[in-house]
Structure formats: C-alpha cells, structure tokens
Amino acid sequence: MLEILDLHASVNETPILKGVDLTVKEGELHAIMGPNGSGKSTLSKIIAGHPSFRVTKGSVKYEVNFKMKDLLALSPDERAREGIFLAFQYPVEVPGVSNFEFLRAAFNAAAAHQGGEEMDVMEFNDFVHEKLRSIGIDEEFLSRQLNVEFSGGEKKRNEILQMAVLSPRLAILDETDSGLDVDSLREVAAGINKLRSPQNAMILITHYQRILNYIVPDKVHILSGGKIIRSGDYELAKEVEEKGYEHII
C-alpha cells in the first residue's frame, strides 16, 4: 500500500531524513520508534503533505485504484481523499468551526471524491453518533468548537473520532500517546484497536514503548539520525523498553 524508497527531506534547508526505506502492506500496523529529533514527525508530515517539508531525494508511492502512484505529486487534501489520515501530535484549535460541521465537511469531501453519497445533516448525525458509540466518545464533543478548550487527552480522542468517521486506508498516528495519563491512553488505544482491519494499515509513531502494551504492532522500526537503523517485531519494542535507545543506537 505504501512504499518509501531512499527518502531524503529537509525543513528550512536542514536535512532531517537521510534515506528512509519503508514498505507497509494492507492489514499491517507498524510502530516507528525513536528518540527526540530522529525525524519521526517529519516522516509523518511528509506522507500527509505538509508544505514546510521538502523532499530532496527518493520516492513515496501509494496504491490508488490498485496502482502504485507517486504520492508526492498529490496535494494534502487529495491524499486525504485517497484515504491517508494523519492524527496530529498537536491538533490545531479552530475557533468558530464546530466539530460536527468539520467532520461532515471532511466526510463529504471524501465521499464525493470516491463517488459515494454525500450526507445531509440528519443522515450524518445518525452516522456520527454510531461512530461515537463505537469508540466511547461523549456526544457533547460534536457541538464544541474544533479542539478549542479541549484538554490534551480530549484532543487526541478527537483525532481518533475523525479517523473513525473517515475510515482511512492508511492512518499515521503521530505521538498520539504523548501527554496522556494512563486512563486516556487506554481509551485512545482501545479506539485505535477498534479501527484496525485487514483492509487498512497504520503507522504508529511513538517515543515510548508504553502504548505498545495496548496495541500490538506487526512490525517495529527504530528511526535515528534520519534513517531506520533497525527493524523487527514486537520483541524490538521490548528491547527498547528494557535497555533504552542508547543501547540500540
């Protein structure tokens, strides 16, 4: 589904990624771990298409209609409509725009692109309530302004709600566990597990091993100095937990 080859990228002329290779298949969940400043967030933003990051070398291919296409040629909103989703490490606060209207606009944009039916307010209301129930989020989320005056944990759960509504084929979760207390972490992890399926794939980006106590990855990669220096299975995450990054790097 996703194929990254020799990816080099810079922000403000500073090289961050220095040759990343990564292949993600349907149904897989990859954890990318690494110390601060290793390039984890840069990788997630490049897949989503953030304009501040510049790819200097390499390629990112993504399967669209059963063909591998150059993902970097698509705008961020085109990527999203093709099923790519980035759960933000720091979700943006948008005063004046309600969660409900934001979710509906996003859902309808994708539906229109994929040839599906756009939903009116009533239909979408039923649909979104079902999603809320499935991941255990209170309906008062809907009427609130997008992320405004949300606690850290609420913001992260709101990202999971967006993911549930959009049912992406490839979700990248950027430090979704950071800043969460144990209860919030458990709730967020449960939401993510509910959304795993054989048809979609996820990339979980994290500094700490602890979220992997709740979400079991198929593959684990260690990113350091802009490169993936080791790949393995769940055992690799445990090794990081026991011995720290220094030992591995």
Binding site: P51, P76, D77, R79, A80, R81, V94, A105, A106, A109
Partner: peptide, 14 residues
Amino acid sequence: DEELFYFQSRGIGE
C-alpha cells in the same frame, strides 16, 4: 498555514 493544513489533511480543499 497550520489551520489550512489541518483542514486539507482531512480532505477539505483550500
């Protein structure tokens, strides 16, 4: 730009 990118990353055009 961050607001715009957030919307775009959800499939909503500029």
